[in-house]
């Protein structure tokens, strides 16, 4: 890196639980360091200027999904965003559409849980599963493709980037549609397409998606959301014939 820059952060501050708190933006100036991520910069801000600043981090490696925020307007993981790839002015806002805990911290868990319950996003076996029996072996290629979709970390970026989700709060988002695509692949899940249709066969599900592909373009795990959504759409449209 060449001569180090001074970064100006414009950070959203508000604590909804504090009756005196007024939503606003605070500016902080931080000297850029080599290989600096937004996680490092935010930690520095908290240590040097503002111990009250709230933001979430657990893994710092793009695995837990807790650090998603709007970075210059685009949803992304703060721990995986290098300041070197951003301009010197950086605005940070909490993800829209989720319950605000404080400042940059949002409750994606609450949203994800409600979505999972609504979509019944777990394996539904038709019969009793005998835990004493050896599991039937799965074709490695199939296991691989299920694992590929299981890489979703429920960070909420796809929901925050989706025009449909922003206009319609009951829309399950790419994360939800991807989950059902994953269970539909799984041979241990005995649900039929008619049953999946019960869950997503309307405008809060697959037909609410307007193919804007914001989800595909921001997903930090680079999941094949366009492909999965088109796949579910074809399967669900067949139910209408």
């Amino acid at each position: 890196m060449t001569a180090s820059r001074t970064l100006t952060f414009h950070v959203f501050r508000h604590n909804p639980r504090d009756p005196d708190s007024v939503p606003g933006v605070r500016d902080y100036q931080v000297e850029e360091a080599p290989g600096m991520t937004l996680f490092i910069a935010l930690t520095r801000i908290r240590e040097e200027f503002d111990p009250g600043l709230s933001f979430d981090f657990v893994c710092r490696a793009g695995v837990c999904g807790s650090c998603a925020m709007l970075i210059n307007g685009r949803p992304g993981l703060a721990c995986r965003s290098l300041t070197g790839e951003l301009p010197a002015d950086i605005s940070l806002f909490p993800l829209p559409g989720f319950e605000l805990i404080a400042d940059l911290s949002v409750n994606t868990g609450k949203w994800m849980r409600a979505m999972s319950e609504r979509l019944q996003a777990w394996v539904h076996a038709a019969g009793e599963v005998n835990l004493n029996e050896i599991e039937i072996a799965m074709d490695p290629e199939l296991a691989e493709s299920i694992y590929e979709l299981d890489r979703c970390i429920e960070c909420g970026c796809c929901v925050a980037a989706c025009g449909s989700a922003q206009m319609r709060p009951d829309f399950v988002g790419a994360v939800g549609l991807n989950k059902l695509a994953r269970f539909r692949l799984d041979p241990r899940d005995d649900r039929s397409d008619a049953e999946y249709y019960q869950l997503i066969g309307d405008d809060s599900g697959i037909f609410g998606c307007m193919s804007l592909l914001g989800c595909q373009d921001v997903c930090p795990k680079e999941l094949s959301l366009q492909t999965q959504i088109a796949f579910m759409r074809r399967a669900m449209a067949r139910q209408g014939l």
Binding site: G73, A161, G163, M210, S211, G214, D217
Partner: peptide, 21 residues
């Protein structure tokens, strides 16, 4: 509310397909 939600997203994201819609 829906207009505002969409316009806010569009201005913030600078995402071509979102603007095209």
């Amino acid at each position: 509310g829906q207009h505002m939600a969409y316009l806010r997203l569009m201005r913030a994201m600078h995402h071509e397909d979102t603007i095209l819609w």
